[in-house]
């Protein structure tokens, strides 16, 4: 198991966990989400191929109402 930080909260994921797998676990639709991993944006087409590493910091963002 690996420990990562997702949106400011520590989370444990499986050793072979990918971004796509994490989004599925969180019930988030990939097309609605932008993922930043260690301050770098991950292109959507790479969600399935990026394996999460110990200590990764992820930001999962989306659009909300705003002016």
């Amino acid at each position: 198991m690996k420990e990562i930080v997702v949106n400011g909260k520590t989370r444990t994921v499986a050793d072979d966990a990918t971004i796509a797998g994490l989004l599925e676990e969180l019930e988030l639709r990939p097309e609605m989400i932008v993922v930043e991993r260690n301050r770098e944006i991950v292109p959507r087409e790479r969600y399935a191929s990026v394996t999460l590493e110990e200590g990764d910091t992820l930001e999962l963002v989306h659009f909300v109402g705003g002016g």
Partner: peptide
């Protein structure tokens, strides 16, 4: 229309994304 960029609320206690 303008929209803001924010963290997804993983606890789902607040609003979901506006694109819904």
């Amino acid at each position: 229309v303008t929209v803001a960029v924010r963290r997804v609320d993983l606890d789902r206690t607040t609003e979901e994304g506006i694109l819904h």
